[in-house]
Simulated assay, not measured.
Amino acid sequence: MTQDVLLSVQGLTKQFPTRNGVVRAVDGVSFDVKRGTIVGLVGESGSGKTTAGRCTLRLIEPNEGRIVFDGVDLRELSEREMRAYRSRLQIIFQDPYSSLNPRLRVDQIIGEALEIHRPVRGAAKRDRIAELLERVGLNPDAARRYPHEFSGGQRQRIGIARALAVEPDFIVADEPVSALDVSVQAQVLNLIQDLQESFGLTMLFIAHDLSVVEYLCDEVVVMYLGRVMERGPSREIYAMPRHPYTQALLSAAPLPDPKASRQRVVLKGDIPSPMNPPSGCVFRTRCRYAVAACAEVVPPLEHIGSDHHVACIRQSDPEVISQGLTL
């Protein structure tokens, strides 16, 4: 598998002005996605992960930063130039109920992308739609039906087929199973993994469930209140999380072995408002290891070995490290 970087996000920042101030949704986020891999972008609701994902596709225009896709900075492209890249960059939305146009049949939903981005018409288009539906586990007869005639899991399969229709190089999967029943989630995750391996897709998989990310992703980026707290290879982060926030998230993730257990780390309070984030380390108000310096210093994302990076002034503290080892 080729391991060159397909997407490099550098210093990504997005702020939303409001009547009462500015919401700092994404604040200096950086990460790479290697070709043919899946990177998990995880964090609680309000961490900015969905905004970051949509900024990478320029569905939302960032305020600052670079989005280098296959050697080209997407932020330097005009709207017309960006259209040429749309077929290479696709998204699977979180809500399978609101992301499909209820007035269109399935063949129209999937065929729309083919008509816009590919010169496919007539029988060739019908064959392509039938092929896509079969590939995502649906009967080709589904092409003549409307979204309301399907279950949530089936609708998400239609959304996946739509994203695959134009043979993209990169897909953002924005919490694609969070709106589904638990019994259906595993089926859709297995489908995504199978498609990624079959087509060599490169993906940014957004989730709040770290057990899902462990199952799918090669690397993990942990976000909190718009900033990256930790990032690195999945096996390293799951074996030894070094940021207190990552430790807390992992402690809440279910274990596959019903006899196994881990020490639960309960975060105190709620995530602060992105309009008024804490000074210094944004996680300090909920961190059990916080010291006075945490309110003064914005911790940089430091390299601690391999491709593992942590933003914590106490990341080398034996007390913090030992907690990672006991999870």
Rank of each mutant, 00 (worst) to 15 (best):
L195V: 06
E236K: 03
Q108G: 11
R288Q: 13
E302P: 01
P272A: 07
I129M: 04
K34I: 00
A293Q: 15
T2C: 10
F170M: 05
T56F: 04
I92K: 00
G152V: 02
H303R: 10
G43N: 05
F69M: 10
S87H: 10
R128C: 05
M223G: 01
E79Y: 10
V33Y: 00
Q154K: 07
R83A: 10
S45D: 07
S151T: 15
P244V: 02
F150D: 06
I206M: 06
G305R: 07
V166G: 06
I158G: 00
G200H: 12
Q315S: 12
P254T: 02
R121E: 14
A113P: 02
H303T: 05
R126F: 02
G122R: 14
R75Y: 01
E79A: 14
I160T: 04
G111L: 07
G11W: 00
G232A: 02
A25L: 07
Q187W: 00
Q154G: 09
R227N: 07
S261W: 03
R155T: 02
Y146K: 14
I38R: 01
L89W: 03
V5A: 10
S316E: 14
H308W: 04
V177E: 00
L325K: 10
T56Y: 03
S234P: 08
L195K: 11
I60A: 14
R288I: 13
Q94A: 02
L204V: 03
K259G: 05
E149L: 11
S183E: 05
V29N: 04
